[in-house]
C-alpha cells in the first residue's frame, strides 16, 4: 500500500466529489453557459467573469472543511493530505478551466444561434428587426495584436485563453489559500486580502521604479539602458509572480490544510 500517494484513492476522491455535487455542478455550469451567451464577444467581461467565477468556485470547494459535520467527514476520509490537496487543485484549476472553456463554447454557439434565429423574426407589423445576424466569433481563442514599444514591430500576444490561464493560476492559488484559511465569507475576505496585497505590490513597484530610475514616474525618453534594466527586472518579477508564487501558495495551503482543526 502506498502511504504517500495512490491513484486509486485520488480517483475515489474525485468520484466522491462528482457523486455528491453532481446536481450543483450541472446548475453552476449551466448558468455559466447562459451568461456566456450574452457576453461571448466582450473579452474584458469574459476575463472578469472567469476570475470571479474561479474565486467563488474555489471558495465553494473548500466550504466543506469549515463545516463542523462535513469537515469531520472530510478529514476522516482515509486518504493522505497530498491526495486531498491534489484533488482540490485538479478541480479548481484543470477541471474548472476546462469546464469554463466548454461553457464558453456552448454559450457562444447557443448565443450566436439564438441571435441569428431572432434576427429572422420581424417584430410587430413594422417589420422591425431588433436583432441582426452575426458571424460566429471565438473571442476567447483569439490573440491581441500589439506594437513592440522599442522596435515598432507588430506582434501577437498569446491567445486570451492562454493568458487567462496564466493569471488564473496565480488567482486560483490565492483563492485556494483564502478558501482554506478563512472560516466564513471566504470569497469576500479573499478579495479584501487580495486588494491589500495588490496595494503592497504597488508600493513595491513604486520602490522598484525609484531604485532603477531615481523617480516614481516613468519617463519614456529617459536613458534606454535604465529602462531596459528595469524591464528585465520587471519581467523577472512578473514571472516570479506568475509561476513561482502559485506554487508557494499551494505549499502554504497544503500545510494550512494539514493543520486545520474542525
Amino acid at each position: 500500500m502506498n502511504t504517500k500517494f495512490d491513484f486509486n484513492r485520488t480517483g475515489l476522491l474525485i468520484q466522491r466529489y462528482f457523486s455528491e455535487r453532481f446536481r450543483s455542478e450541472l446548475i453552476y455550469w449551466g448558468i455559466m453557459a447562459i451568461v456566456f451567451m450574452f457576453i461571448r464577444n466582450n473579452i474584458m467581461v469574459i476575463g472578469g467573469l472567469i476570475f470571479i467565477a474561479a474565486l467563488f468556485y474555489a471558495a465553494r470547494f473548500f466550504r466543506e472543511i469549515h463545516s463542523r459535520t462535513n469537515g469531520i467527514n472530510y478529514f476522516m476520509i482515509p486518504a493522505t493530505q497530498v491526495e486531498k490537496m491534489t484533488v482540490s487543485l485538479l478541480f479548481t484549476i484543470i477541471y474548472f478551466y476546462g469546464m469554463m472553456i466548454l461553457a464558453y463554447i456552448v454559450g457562444n454557439l447557443l448565443g450566436t444561434l439564438f441571435t441569428n434565429l431572432l434576427a429572422k423574426i420581424s417584430f410587430f407589423s413594422f417589420e422591425l428587426h431588433l436583432f441582426h445576424s452575426v458571424d460566429l466569433q471565438w473571442t476567447l481563442f483569439e490573440s491581441k495584436q500589439y506594437t513592440e514599444i522599442f522596435t515598432g514591430e507588430l506582434k501577437y500576444q498569446a491567445p486570451y485563453i492562454v493568458l487567462f490561464m496564466k493569471y488564473l493560476l496565480l488567482m486560483q492559488s490565492v483563492f485556494t489559500l483564502g478558501g482554506i484559511y478563512f472560516k466564513n465569507n471566504q470569497a469576500f475576505k479573499t478579495i479584501l486580502s487580495g486588494i491589500a496585497l495588490l496595494f503592497a505590490f504597488s508600493i513595491i513597484s513604486i520602490l522598484e521604479l525609484k531604485i532603477f530610475t531615481g523617480t516614481t514616474s516613468v519617463n519614456i525618453n529617459s536613458a534606454e539602458s535604465v529602462i531596459t534594466l528595469h524591464r528585465v527586472f520587471h519581467n523577472i518579477m512578473a514571472n516570479v509572480f506568475a509561476y513561482i508564487l502559485p506554487v508557494y501558495l499551494w505549499i502554504v495551503s497544503y500545510f494550512r490544510l494539514t493543520e486545520k482543526e474542525v
Binding site: E20, R21, T69, M76, Q81, T258
Partner: peptide, 21 residues
Amino acid sequence: RKLQMLQDVYFFPEELPVFNL
C-alpha cells in the same frame, strides 16, 4: 492524521454530515 491511522479509526459524530447519496 496519517493514512494508516485514518484507515483504522471511524468517527461517528453526533451531528451527521449531509450526504446527497
